[in-house]
Nucleic acid binder design. Structure first.
Lengths: 198, 198
DNA sequence: GAGTGGATAGACTGCCCAGTCTAATCTGTG
DNA sequence: CACAGATTAGACTGGGCAGTCTATCCACTC
């Protein structure tokens, strides 16, 4: 059912967004409008009925991608170690997935062109996670489970250790031999807890 | 003095490389040949006398950039803590400099286009540093200064903590309030030593 | 059935780019 | 001086791209 007569078909909009997400992640911002409408199976003019221009589509597509990446963190369930391990699992799975790496690559490469947009998306993604993680750590510090220190600094250290070097290698296309995921997470979380032990 | 008569002037080659380094770091691979020869003050044909095409120039320019970034590490001078602090200082200074961030951005963005080149450069840059750092750590483990563990893993943790979150924010153009550099390095190195204490 | 407004295909404009080609100039060698 | 080879300015080709425009078609409303 429609309001009056034939408004822009939401189906087409969705198809365009989906095609754009795929192609931007594959080819970066250089993915052409022709390629996008081709994959969406939609006419050129239809694209310009739904979006002002390529930039608008890019902004919207990339916003969707980022919201798929953020990892949840529940600080109240179980021990601190278990909370951190749970967070680590999800964060690594998302940030190190092919999509996670691709979105990181395209966002960093387009930062000079769309400074405000990229800053905003960083705030919604990594920034958000740093804040909530820092909150959990601050609480643990107040309870004496961790030594008194700057919670944001501690959160940054943990997140850096969880994906740092591995993400770099995926970004650069360097192959990595498979490793035991849970053993690695345990090593990092336990090491972190030693580093910030009271 | 020249071999026979008027070989390609090395001065022009150098000017082209310098201009290319500047423009590629500023604008990424999209920097046009016109812009590069313009900045070098050289004619179009001269460019194609010295380089086969844009790709060749890019490869050579970016190789120079990487060799400027790698940080030295001397494991035999002073205590382990001091060696790591020295390394940390230089590594952070280079990796977090505007040039260091820009080269990281352009290499990761061009990894899909030039897979072999980028893998090679990673090996010459970060890969090299991981190896030498891991060597120092392995030695310290053998001497009982650090707990027995995988030296490469430990090296990756330290390097991730040293630049991880900070580089991400520079990559994304997120401003960061200034902090005490030496205090931060001490915190990270001391935390690392606690994490891997015997 | 008339009208409104999206959807389609495709042409078209204007722009930018990498790489080639031409004609003229300059500089050193023999 | 004649020659070889680098250099220069600039035209030119061929291709790709974003965005606009036209003509036609289609679906729905009144």
């Amino acid at each position: 059912m429609m309001n009056t007569v034939a408004p822009p078909q939401p189906g087409n909009r969705e198809r365009l967004l989906q095609a754009a997400r795929e192609l931007f992640l594959e080819q970066g911002y250089d993915a052409s409008v022709d390629a996008i409408i081709g994959r969406a199976g939609v006419a050129r003019q239809t694209f310009y009925n739904h979006f002002q221009n390529k930039e608008s589509l890019f902004a919207e597509a990339v916003r969707c991608c980022v919201s798929d990446i953020i990892a949840p963190l529940d600080g109240r369930a179980g021990s601190l170690r278990e909370s951190l391990q749970d967070f680590a699992r999800v964060y690594r799975a998302r940030a190190l997935s092919p999509e996670g790496v691709a979105i990181y690559r395209i966002l960093s490469s387009q930062a000079p062109r769309f400074p405000e947009l990229i800053r905003e998306l960083f705030g919604l993604g990594d920034g958000q996670m740093i804040s909530t993680l820092a909150g959990v750590l601050r609480h643990a510090m107040a309870e004496g489970q961790l030594r008194q220190s700057e919670p944001v600094f501690a959160a940054e250290m943990l997140m850096a250790m969880l994906v740092g070097q591995e993400r770099a290698q995926y970004l650069f296309g360097v192959p990595r031999e498979a490793a035991d995921e849970t053993a690695k997470i345990d090593q990092i979380v336990d090491g972190f807890l030693r580093m910030f032990a009271p």
